[in-house]
Amino acid sequence: MKRILAVALLVSIGISAHADPAKRSGYSYAEPETRSIQDDDFANPGMLWVETGEKAWATADGESGKSCQSCHGAADGMKGVATHYPKFAASAGKVIDMEQRINLCRENGMKAKPYKWESQELLGLTAFLKMQSRGMPVSVSIDGPAAPLPCQGQGRVLSAARPA
């Protein structure tokens, strides 16, 4: 449930007009009542996680004694970054999402324990980082190393196939 709330907040990313009219933000499918809650930062419960993330951003942790801010500076410098995730990370050798990126930073940069999946801090930092890109269109690369594997995209075929 908590994850749904945090993600609901993030749906507001990409409200702005896309070049491609066929692409619509999930926000545009929501009922007006749901949208009005999302539009009001006070009523939007996702903002509680943004607050948690804002605190985590500036809190030093791990053996390096660093916080996110120590390397990345003020959070508004991260504007637009979240629109590119999920993204291929050369250091991981695979496509990773925002949560995995945060935990890579924790392990490699901060020498801290990675956050537990679904933990308040991880959800919070993710929501806070995505908040910095609010209103920007999503811009995920699906070519080069992030291109789908040959086996991907076969789901529809497999799903429709009758067992022999």
Binding site: F42, L48, W49, E51, T52, Q120
Partner: peptide
């Protein structure tokens, strides 16, 4: 969310 603070809007 226990660490979160109360917020009011008037």
């Amino acid at each position: 969310m226990t660490q979160s603070t109360a917020r009011v809007k008037v």
